[in-house]
């Protein structure tokens, strides 16, 4: 069974910080424990099949100009620059 500490560690790596930590983690633990059912599926020797697309089928990597100025959709811009605050 997965421990609350393990989940807490991963949530920190995911940059997720919740107020009611214990309640969240308990529910996540319940869900992940349910996933243990996969252990009894007997699929250890199964190959993972993935759809393949040949490179010829992909669209050409061409520059398509955007009809409008995306910069004008920003809230803080000056001239051709986006103003970002200090961090």
């Amino acid at each position: 069974m997965v421990t609350v500490e393990e989940i807490e560690h991963v949530s920190k790596l995911m940059k997720i910080d919740v107020d009611d930590n214990a309640e969240y983690l308990e529910k996540v633990q319940t869900i992940i424990s349910y996933f243990d059912i996969l252990d009894s599926a007997g699929v250890e020797s199964e190959e993972i099949s993935m759809p393949e697309i040949s490179i010829e089928e992909l669209r050409r990597d061409e520059y398509i100009p955007f009809a409008e100025k995306l910069i004008e959709k920003m809230n803080h811009y000056k001239g051709t620059y986006v103003r970002a605050p200090k961090m």
Binding site: S11, M14, L25, V28
Partner: peptide
């Protein structure tokens, strides 16, 4: 809450 839960799970199960 649901999105937060699934993001935590999404970080955990492929880790």
């Amino acid at each position: 809450p649901e999105v937060t839960r699934r993001m935590i799970i999404g970080g955990f199960v492929p880790s």
